[in-house]
Design a protein around this nucleic acid. Structure first.
Length: 503
RNA sequence: GGGUGUGUAGCUCAGCCGGUAGAGCAGCGGCCUUUUAAGCCGUUGGUCGAAGGUUCGAUUCCUUCCACACUCACCA
């Protein structure tokens, strides 16, 4: 009595969990093992639906998760979902026997089963496995969100983004189409690796735990090594290590670099993200521009078409990318002559155009802000932007001709977002030291995103680095572009979230 | 960090001007051997995100907090 009353007070979830534990016990009592060790699969559901003519009347063995169950007394229909799709099962007591059918009646949506049976079509024409043997492979005790579908219309979709990201396994089960993004992600990574391997690049791995961080301007995550009793940083970039390898004599290296930046999160930023950086000796940024263009073309072609649609913009990767210098763009969009511009002129322009600015901004910061505000939004078709201010590019070589306030650096913009950052790498050790010392001074003045002075890196450059072209590509953004996603969370299986509070 | 919005059953959602809650699905008990958002009969399940306040009375109004989404800023 008391027990019954206690049970009555349980929430539905608690009831379901208790009922399913009870079912496990009953299944065991009936002589079935709810968690066996293996099952011989002969076909994927997709193979059966794709090759029905060849398989009709043949016996197959498939395994997967029960996603629908429609019981009608002594016979039932169900859908079984495996990695590639779904197939209907017809389960009748006559075919599988009374005892197994009794066990089947205890199964729930979410259970994993293996079945053997004959491929057929029902009278409504759906390809179906007429089951003659059914094995429970894993009993579910926690209910799945139930999604119904008719004629392609989904009812009660599992669409809460928080739940989807936090419980990605549920998302993948219930919304299997999102698997496609991650399958494509894998294809892009493979195509990237092929691209560099086939060009004689060596894939390398460099430290993620770094005693000093560098290669980008960003705040790091800090951790501690106990036996060395020293703080270490999770890398914000692998640039300085890859350059050491160029010094060491590897003349083409690349790395898929998981980077960590302790900064804000939004649709384009996750605290950990993947970049691909690559360095090639004896070439400059013009060479790297061509290579990057080939890279994007290669990815597009690998995925099937040079034409893509992203955020309402059609992009044709078979066409050459535009190449515009900063100076041209400033002249065109803002009417500013960068050759004559200085802080005073920028400030005057900003006042005239009611653009809010900080009087403390230097030349480089002004240029950066104005670019972000007035030029970047216009760069929809793939456009290389060339020649950035030296002040904000401490690792790039000064332009070989023209204004020494600019460096040989390019970024690639597509659909108003940045995808690539590249330099003719600075290999003059005296200049490099001077620039990093300048960064160090900025740090001392409170700019916690200024780069650190890494003496060993300077030593490496002093040892002699050949002329080198170097590139970093934001791989997650590339994947967003080619999978049509507008949020980085949707191309990361487990995007960063505030830890769940379990009460 | 700012703005906007959301938070009610396992899932998807209603709930008006304040009177302590509803539906569908899922679950549970039945019936049902070609169904497919299966159907039919019956039925369990809620500290209405949290804490305060106003009130005779708060899911509803107010305040604060928490979480998430969108967005702006910051940031490559």
């Amino acid at each position: 009595m008391d027990e019954q009353q206690a049970q009555e007070k349980q929430s539905t979830l608690e009831q379901i969990l208790a009922q399913r534990r009870e079912k496990i016990a009953r299944i065991r009592e009936m002589g079935f093992e709810p968690y066996p060790y293996a099952f011989d699969v002969s076909h994927k559901s997709r193979e059966i639906t794709d090759h029905y003519e060849a398989l009709e009347g043949k016996s197959v063995a498939v395994a997967g998760r029960l996603m629908t169950i429609r019981r009608m007394g002594k016979a039932s229909f169900a859908h079984l979902q495996d990695a590639g799709g779904r197939i209907q099962l017809y389960v009748s007591r006559n075919d599988i026997g009374e005892k197994t059918y009794e066990m089947f009646m205890l199964l729930d949506i979410g259970d994993i089963v293996g079945v053997r049976g004959v491929v057929m079509k029902t009278r409504t024409g759906e390809i179906t496995v007429k089951v003659d043997a059914l094995t429970l492979l894993s009993k579910n005790i926690r209910p799945l969100p139930i999604v119904k579908e008719k004629d392609g219309v989904v009812y009660d979709a599992f669409a809460d983004k928080e739940l989807r990201y936090r419980h990605r396994y549920l998302d993948l089960i219930v919304n299997p189409e999102i698997k496609d993004v991650f399958i494509k992600r894998s294809a892009i990574i493979r195509a990237t690796r092929d691209f560099f391997d086939s060009r004689g690049y060596l894939e390398v791995e460099t430290p993620i735990l770094q005693p000093l961080y560098g290669g980008a301007n960003a705040r790091p995550f800090i951790t501690h090594h106990n036996s060395l009793n020293t703080d270490l940083f999770l890398r914000i970039a692998d640039e300085l290590y890859l350059k050491r390898l160029i010094v060491g004599g590897f003349d083409r290296v690349y790395e898929f670099s998981r980077n960590f930046r302790n900064e804000g999160m939004d649709r384009n930023h996750n605290p950990e993200f993947t970049a691909i950086e690559f360095y090639q000796a004896y070439v400059d940024y013009y060479y790297m521009m061509d290579l990057v263009e080939h890279y994007f073309r290669h990815i597009a072609e690998t995925l099937g078409s040079p034409l893509i649609e992203y955020q309402g913009e059609s992009i044709d990767f078979s066409k050459p990318f535009a190449r515009r210098t900063m100076a041209e763009l400033f002249h065109e969009y803002l009417g500013i002559d960068l050759g004559k511009a200085d802080e005073t002129l920028f400030a005057a322009w900003a006042r005239e155009h009611h653009f809010e600015y900080d009087p403390k901004w230097n030349y480089g910061q002004f240029l950066d802000k104005l670019f972000d505000e007035f030029i970047e939004p216009k760069l929809l078709q793939p456009t290389f932007v060339l020649d950035y201010p030296k002040a904000i590019s401490p690792l790039a070589k000064v332009r070989r001709d023209g204004d020494p306030r600019f460096v040989e650096r390019f970024e690639l913009f597509i659909c108003a977002a940045e995808y690539v950052n590249a330099f003719s790498e600075l290999n003059d050790p005296l200049d490099q030291r001077e620039r990093l010392e300048g960064q160090d001074r900025l740090r001392a003045l409170g700019d916690d995103e200024a780069q650190m002075l890494d003496e060993d890196f300077i030593r490496a450059i002093e040892t002699g680095m050949p002329p080198t072209g170097g590139v970093g590509i934001g791989l997650d953004r590339v994947i967003m572009l080619f999978t049509g996603q507008s949020t980085i969370k949707d191309v990361l299986l487990f995007p960063a979230m505030r830890p769940e509070k379990l009460s």
